[in-house]
Design a protein around this nucleic acid. Sequence first.
RNA 1: GUGGGUGUAGCUCAGUUGGUUAGAGCACUUGCUUGACAUGCAAGGGGUCGUUGGUUCAAGUCCAUUCAUCCACACCA
Length: 876
Amino acid sequence: MARQLEKKYDPADFESRLYAEWESKGYFKPSGNKNAPAFSIVMPPPNITGQLHMGHALDNTMQDILTRYKRMCGYDTLWLPGTDHASIATEAKIVEAMRKEGVSKEDIGREGFLKRAWDWNDKYGNRICEQLRKMGSSCDWDRKRFTMDEGCSEAVKDVFVKLYEKGLIYRGTRIINWCPHCRTSISDAEVEYKDMDGSFWHIRYPVKDSDEWVYLATTRPETLLGDTAVAVHPDDERYKHLVGKTVILPLVGREIPVVADEYVEMDFGTGVVKITPAHDPNDFEVGTRHGLPLENMLTDDARITENYPKYAGMDRYEARKAIVKDLEEGGYLVKIEPLKHNVGTCYRCGTTIEPRASLQWFVSMKPLAAPAIEAVKNGDVRFVPDRFSKNYLHWMENIRDWCISRQLWWGHRIPAFYCDDCGELTVTKEDSAVCPKCGKPMRRDPDTLDTWFSSALWPFSTMGWPDTDAPDFKRYYPTTTLVTGYDIITFWVSRMIFSGLEHTGKKPFSDVLIHGLIRDSQGRKMSKSLGNGIDPLEVISKYGADALRFTLATGNSPGNDMRFSDERIESSRNFANKIWNAARFVMMNLDRECDTDNIVTETLAEEDKWVLSLYNKLIKEVRENLDKYELGIAVSKLYDFIWDVFCDWYIELVKPRLAEKGSETNIAAQATLTYVLSNTLKLLHPFMPFITEEIWLTLPHKGESIMISEYPRYDEKLDFPQAVASVNALIESIRAIRNRRAEMNVPPSRKAHVIIVSPRGRELFGGKEAYFVRLASAAGVTVADKCDPEGTVRIVTGDCEIFIPLADMVDLEAERARLAKELEAAENEVKRAEGKLANAEFTSKAPEKVVNNEREKLEKYKALAEKLRASLLSLK
RNA sequence: GUGGGUGUAGCUCAGUUGGUUAGAGCACUUGCUUGACAUGCAAGGGGUCGUUGGUUCAAGUCCAUUCAUCCACACCA
């Protein structure tokens, strides 16, 4: 053997070494085999500000499992990595760092700021990629992209100009969500609503030239400054006489009209609503219908404007206090009620959003949404699990126009130019544009685009689009599967779908595999503020990447959250350790080169055939599970096979034969051990790439690496049903004997006398005496035509009876009780089966297989009950 | 308000198109220095699958009801 495994399993010994080898040998690159089907995934690009967290770890483990599996199945496989410039998050981070230096954005200007941002990207943008390497991610790093690299930027410009020319991007004044902290607009999707305690202020406005008042209530009294009307319902008899009249705005003295609008609900409150078109989406609509002026009363950082000298410069909450106080003193305040209401907050910084009328760029969504809805409805794009298509459709069907302009510097600058001279607006991909109308130089729009605008193009902008002849675009687009969490379906998945359809005419991917969140051991979200996050890198350094990946794959069912705990990661590490030691055992018993691609079946013992059959079944099931994205099920089957079948039974059964060096049976045992181990490692490789490679390379093997070997295929030549039945019977008997000995507290040092089996045992266990000796503490096995029940403990299985001469240890009373209990259970089964079979409905309607199964079971339990009865009798 | 998830052993969770006696890990009890592994081995206890009803020959699995819990979206000033 070229190399032996270290005695102790220590993943740090080999994980990074193997990764470097794989990468340097180019195994992560697509095979380029034109005859093979393509399989492609684009990695959801992590933010350049980000550090690897458990969410990334899960997402990338799942992608890597699929990629490695498909690669081994012979697909031409591309997993394309990259990073996202994350405009708002990155900008906030840099501004914060600058604040500590006492420098502001304005101080250094746009150029200076962008330089800092690019420096940041150079310094930290690659950090997360290094961390993904530690996970074992087999993505093609040579194809790594960045949302602001040249190609992606070109795609963004192209898309913007095309959509503008089609009339699907427009500029207009609308109510948008304004974050006073980030000082930018954000989209509807970026607003998080939180329940907060607030108050309901009831106030009254005097009607002009009358002693009447109108009573109304508001959660935001300070917006009174921006009121340009009050509204009532047109059918409201109480207020009909007021419509068209004028009320006087308290504190301000502005005269504003009373308008009639159906938006007002008569039954709610007093039926009168103050209308602040510049600071409320609904009021904006009312304002538009009635031609009301927009009165913007707040600055960018949510302070009162100079228009209201008494309050100017106060922030919105200070102003609220001052205004309430003034209202009270002026006799306008009626009462204050406590109220819980939902307040929109910025998803990045948590600041309360200020709805604000503002001139921004928008994408007209309705026309783009229609085909995106259709693609999911007709199954062209499939969500796994399916229930998420409902979320998606709900979002798409109720979609509003997408505000895409951001008052930030870090990002794709909007390719729109304004001529200050003639007022012309030009949208063009050219950078230094001259006004097409008057030839004067133009001023570029200072705003940048929403980060998600470029993310939406990711599946094709990374493949060379807008060049539709780009080789990657032609070969790997549309991609096969997108793997992501349910939390960004609206942000990202939906936008990729409509963008792909609109710009490439094709869906961006066929399947969307959704996973849940990783929670802590108490089920809480991992968050910085709670400090309960578990760092995947720490887990890797302590337990290894394989253990982390295995933990993330185990119990992974699509769309569901999972908890992460020390117990689970330890159990995964123990599994890795188990494999390691099993492999060491196999190797120390090898004295010849074994063929791991083929196995000669003629000389195999029954247990060899047994393990091969179970292995063969495993291949079929694991492949089926992986094809259906059932990663958690596949991995638990591998676990059970390796631990229970291969280690606990097969290795134990085969041990005696390993001592018989040079014999035919010894050779067969070595061959089977090696064959099954080596190929099971292949099955496991997508889940635990490092340990499987390290062991596989040490075993006899053909080829350079397990990761480019062929994934095992089901082979009917390896099915041996008779051997399976026979070895299962053996195992059942050994278990039963152990069980009896344990129950009777037989000390392990005490070998039983020779075990006697009933005649049926001759066929069942002929030649298998050694197993009983080794595994069931027997001194030997004899077959008796007629057993002496005196002085033995009896064990009855479905197939035969076993007698152990341990009479001196038997409490006859307890023995009888035990047999009686077993008999009762058997009789109950007989009754149940008989009842079922007596039911004509069952026998006629149930599938034949199920009925036959029931018949066999009935026979089995009848025989068992019969034997138990005989045993009981003989004890009397 | 609308939509959705979850509820299975003490804990955390699997359970694939309905079909043997419902599984695992951890925890627990008992016994083992078994020449691969104590990160281990063997044996064991522990569940009326949230409730009630229905469909079916057959329900943890499908339908309805209800309770609990979580989430998403939308929100009336």
